[in-house]
Design a protein around this nucleic acid. Structure first.
Lengths: 209, 209
DNA sequence: GAATGCTTGTTAAATTCTTGACAATCCCTC
DNA sequence: GAGGGATTGTCAAGAATTTAACAAGCATTC
């Protein structure tokens, strides 16, 4: 069993997939599954599943397979779903609203505590039960609440100044939907970028093959 | 120079990134760039960039580097942005609206020609200049217009029946935002899945390292 | 227009990732 | 409770990917 920091990026990338498939199986009231069956579902190989899971310890049993609920819990805990990272969202336009409604932050170890926008028409609206605040209140809020994750759903042009302010206020982790390259401008932050457009280009590429 | 089908998935995954960075450089009115400089921007290695680009042919010049506009065009063309795939969207809720407003389909070789929803409150709304149609009109529309790409922004529970209908009507490519696993149920289709939740879990994992 | 310096395309080495194989071990049936 | 069948954890081989190195060639300067 390796230290977390030794786990390769390829494995990490797959963990959320395992987690999701296991969730489906729980919903279907399946109790156990073998690496072979899971591999068939996920269109991967049994070998890879066993290898991946073994990075974190032996969760299976010979002749039986894996207990789905237990495995789901373990992977969840590796991914940090049992944490409660204070999370704020910047931008409550179409994208911000979609992310807020689509993603269950709670189930992923995040607690969405505030949403900010710059548009007077949007400020004051209620999104997922949270009243959208003016971006002017960002500094005060951060000083009082010390959020750890910021979700950036704002246009590229505003991203730099907002990100700089957030970093100065101590925010270290960003879920970045904006087209702004945080890593290029800031160091010592943790960023997960979402490039929706890339995914569509990958599709059009595949079509042309 | 290899045949397209010989290009590895790792390279393909990076092409849209190159494309996007080159777009930024064009906006900055930069004319040329070396693999070394581009690598610094993208936080990768010059070697990898040269290796990747060389899969498709020698676009650079020794002692000079790469002409940004020319390279941008070539990669765009590899990715298929000069095509005009007829595209329809299923689901015009928050997510559908966000995708529609966020993504420039035109710039990515896709022409969004219709949007469908099941909700009477949403049907008739205008989204990105397109009037949302009832899902009941889907069959008629497809028979008349033969779309090639369907963007699925609908809940998991409705996804199977809609996807089945679309496949029967000849749609072969899917940009799937739903939590439904198309590959598990259908063969001979091209699917690009978007798992937003995975990305957040990756972030929480990174934080805990 | 020759010399210098830079940067590519390409090859080879190194590393990482995936797959296959099998002994060890556990479940389950009879 | 013993035997048969199944499935894991793990190791090693095989692929694939990434990195490093360098000759070839072009741009730029003097």
């Amino acid at each position: 069993m390796a230290k977390n920091s030794d786990i390769s990026a390829s494995v990490i990338k797959r963990l959320p997939r395992y987690y999701s498939y296991l969730e489906d199986l729980i919903e279907e009231n399946v109790e156990r599954i073998s690496s072979k069956e899971l591999a068939a579902r996920m269109k991967t190989t049994a070998s890879q599943i066993r290898q991946d899971l073994n990075c974190f310890g032996g969760f299976g049993q010979q002749g039986y397979g894996y207990n789905i609920k237990a495995l789901h819990n373990v992977i969840g805990s590796i991914l940090g779903v049992d944490k409660e990272y204070k999370t704020i969202m910047i931008g409550a336009g179409n994208l911000g609203k979609a992310v807020t409604s689509q993603i269950s932050f709670e189930k992923k170890g995040c607690r969405l505590t505030a949403i900010f926008d710059i548009d007077p028409d949007i400020i004051g609206q209620t999104v997922a039960g949270i009243k959208v605040l003016s971006i002017d209140e960002l500094e005060k809020f951060c000083k009082e609440n010390l959020p750890s994750i910021a979700v950036l759903c704002l246009p590229k042009d505003n991203a730099f100044s907002v990100a700089k302010k957030l970093i100065d206020l101590g925010v270290k982790s960003f879920w970045n939907f904006s087209h702004f390259d945080l890593n290029l401008h800031f160091d010592n932050i943790i960023v997960e970028n979402v490039h929706l457009g890339d995914s569509l280009l990958t599709l059009t590429y595949k079509i042309s093959c």
